[in-house]
Design a protein around this nucleic acid. Structure first.
Lengths: 228, 228, 228, 228
DNA sequence: TATGAATGAGCTTTCATTCAT
DNA sequence: GATGAATGAAAGCTCATTCAT
């Protein structure tokens, strides 16, 4: 059949990528068939292989590109800001806004890591660790400066990121709340959580919390982050 | 051949259920084949159909039973406690401990909702809403009493549940931190978050909290984070 | 569909094996599709996988079983015979008769070694070496006893086996010649070849032969035994 | 881009032909893909169709050209020689040398006849019959003159050609034996075979044969049996 | 002359499921 | 309660081939 005038490989590649994101978001990687994907972009399924080597690398490309984008943009947003509290606010706002505008990508990156094969998963997990590292760094810095009350920065990092990322499970554009309102709500929870419920300036004596009273911890065999 | 004395259908059914949980946890519902499952329990794949109608209902049964168990136990734990802050602490502790001892079930219930068909998903989502309702009720009650600073109880509910549930993404039994320490860390984040950084007047003595008082919820027979 | 009364797995397995031999013989391994094979035995193509792991092992099983059968029967036929000339006659007769009754198997074993993957090919080549070893042993023994004129037993072995095996390229049962006549004809060629033939009267001076005179047939631009 | 000076269609056609021979030799016709072939010569697979009509005619062209070359050169070598024994020697030497320098072509012509479609195969089989006819004529002539002992010239023809052709299953240039030595060895087997009834006991003095007169052989690096 | 996008058919293989025994 | 033979659909993927540019 004659090609549509103006159609070209790059355009098709982009269409495939977008359709892939959409379908994996909707059905899951395992449940999405390449025939579906091909139909979505108006191709025969075999023709897809001009654009990727196999289904697995399609997923990997999507996830890796997303993670690199996420990481890069987060670093850009944080650049030049020194104060831990300010950095934390920026991080929250960035993370939330990014997730609200990239629902599908984010959802995939979180849900389909299991579908990546060993080698690919390692790459993605590495990127994720770097991203988590941004937040962990902020928390440690804030704790060191006495502005945050964070006992276990690693755990707090996982907790906060889980909380913020969870937005992609319910947010739909055009809902009752504006993005700003959502950002404010989440940010308040996070800031409150790490500042320990105390007024920030005259920091309440931390001793009233019972948490620090059991320092007998096992030697520190860092819990391997999540399943691989 | 004579069957092993004492072996019976109920036992096989239970074995299938457990193997199902393990394999879905490990590979995902779509990626788990009934051949695998049958092999795991020493049957032919066709024989599984004595125990369930089809793969889909196996998943549904697992998820629904889990959700009902979760909901029932949460309600039981909260029964009789009136103070919103105490109720919140109980909820957090319950949720975390439950998730730490039922990693696989919890993981499945969160990840495989997408794999349920319309009707089944509706049932599970209903149960989930009821469970979320518990937390939302606590937050609203606390806000009404002026003890919590929560602007959007619904959003806060999603946020907190996401945070707490996220534990099943990284927790492995036997890690550096005890369950108590983890519960404390997460709880502090939650309480801090919802008390908005306001000093909670004269903070009630922490000893009245029931959280640490039942550390032996059930004899950790949960199959560990599967890795074959 | 109800199974044909009396049909069973063993019967189907045998039918598949035979149909496999027939189709590989007729079309070649690469050119035979499993759909064809399944149709030949009245199954769906997927059902074949009850009987073999994959197409490759079907081929391997056929070839290996054939080679072991060939080797075993050859050794049996030669057992107890000492005289090299007698052994050679027995070997020729055995080889020819076996090939005339197992045309397809033999053809496959010779033509499809290339289609076996590395590991399988190694096994088959090993069996083939053992079989060739039988003939080589006979030739060496005869040469040692002065009854054969064989300069290069290895080369002679290859040569003779190629000659004898070639029968499967033209023989069809029910042709003009009986199996006995064919055996006699080939055997005479072999025996004559290794016993050096009659003193050909006054043998013409070899110098008149043009063979050695043009060693530079063309500038060896032939791409060498390819291996990329 | 400007084409390399001097590059042209004929050159590309030749490159395709050679790459085709190489790849069919290595993988077999069915197993060779046109993508592979195109890659080998630095083209897109679609571009190959400027040089042949389809995969099948590529094979046919290769085989037919080879057969015509073989036939023509054989006739040329035999031209002018009358004596049957001399003609037989020439035929053997020619056949062997040709095969040793054209391993791939010869291998293909023997193995891939099955891959030719009906019409093409008929042409090739016709050429092969003419080639076999050369040897059969020699054998009949020799038998008529009483110099050969050949009962069934047709069978003997097949047998001898199979024997000689078999060299392409194991010969690799640069092996222990020189081409001359190989030719001598095979020729002795053939001549012995057709002159047959040598009295075994009073074995003619071997000295009259020139074959043993060149003992200067390379150190014995056993030629690896055939391709693996 | 060559590209590169695309086709459409076909491949091997896996799967959930059925059912006579 | 369980087997094991079989189905039928669908999967991911490769292929020879076409054709506008």
């Amino acid at each position: 059949m004659a090609r549509t005038i103006g159609s070209n490989g790059a355009r098709t590649a982009e269409a495939i990528r977008q359709a892939g994101v959409k379908l994996i978001y909707k059905h899951g990687y395992e449940a999405m068939s390449l025939r579906q994907l091909a139909a979505e972009v108006g191709l025969q399924s075999g023709s897809l292989y001009k654009y990727f080597d196999n289904k697995q690398t399609l997923l990997f490309d999507i996830v890796r590109d997303h993670m690199e984008d996420l990481l890069g943009k987060a670093e850009a947003d944080l650049a030049g800001i020194e104060d831990p509290l300010a950095r934390l606010r920026v991080f929250c706002a960035f993370h939330l806004r990014y997730h609200m505008t990239r629902l599908a990508h984010v959802f995939i990156a979180n849900m389909e890591i299991r579908s990546l094969d060993e080698a690919h998963r390692a790459v993605v997990v590495g990127l994720r660790r770097r991203y988590e590292g941004l937040l962990e760094g902020i928390l440690r810095q804030g704790a060191a400066q006495g502005v945050f009350e964070v006992r276990e920065p690693k755990v707090a990092t996982y907790a906060i990121i889980s909380m913020l990322t969870g937005i992609c499970m319910w947010y739909l554009p055009g809902g009752r709340l504006s993005q700003d309102e959502i950002v404010d709500t989440y940010t308040a929870l996070v800031i409150g959580g790490v500042t320990g419920g105390a007024p920030l300036q005259p920091l309440a004596a931390p001793t009233e919390l019972p948490v620090h009273e059991k320092p007998t911890r096992r030697p520190a065999s860092v819990p391997k982050a999540a399943r691989t």
